[in-house]
Amino acid sequence: MGKVKIKKKETRIDMTAMSDVTVLLLTFFMLTSTFLQKEPVQVITPPSVSEKKVPDSKLMSVLVAQDGKVYLELLGTKDSTLKSEDLREAVLKKAVAKYNATHTNKVNLTAKHVEAFRKSNAFGVPISNMTKWLDMPVDERDKALKTAGIPIEENFDLTRPTEFQIWVQAVYDALEDAGAADDMKKGTGIAIKADAGTPYERVQVVMNNLQTIKMNKFSLMTALKKEE
């Protein structure tokens, strides 16, 4: 007498294959990606067909917000000769020294200030407020940045540079000291990242400032153009 056997079906699914796939994807994402940097203002760059990529080292990006506020971001060399943090420290010291030489209200930096500045990705406050800004806790610093920006105005006088020009010159000098200023000379090391809706006048002020300190070659950051 043959009993009718009911096959018991296994309800659990084997997750091994699924796990394989996810680990693979995870590895892919970890290896290919670079983290988004926190920026003080959101900037949407205009599109172009250019295929030149933004370099990921020895780069000074000038952020121009819609209302004309200007911020700087710095990237050091890829190897450890001049890390981004070290570059920032050198730039801060040079810029403050230059500022103190021409202004009566001197700015005195402490080791704590320098340490805080090393860690800030983007910066852009008037140098006179620098110590006050660096004393703030991190989240307040980000908030304060939104309403600040590097002071900039039309200026063709090399003897009385604007604060923006002081900063850019400091970046150049710091890179030159490390023997890494060639990209800035060629213009690939300076990238203007302006919002598409910025009135052109405001971008022109930035360009004129660069031109005055003889940095007349630079690049404009754009996004990939969508086909219409």
């Binding site: 995870l26 295929e51 213009g187 690939t188 031109q211 003889k214 007349n216 070659k217 630079f218 404009l220």
Partner: peptide, 28 residues
Amino acid sequence: MNMLLITFFMLCTTMIKSQTLSVALPTN
């Protein structure tokens, strides 16, 4: 756990690098 990590990486990273247009202005 893997899915969670993948989601994290996908949201926090950029893959597209910006393009640049070179500009050379005359000196002043």
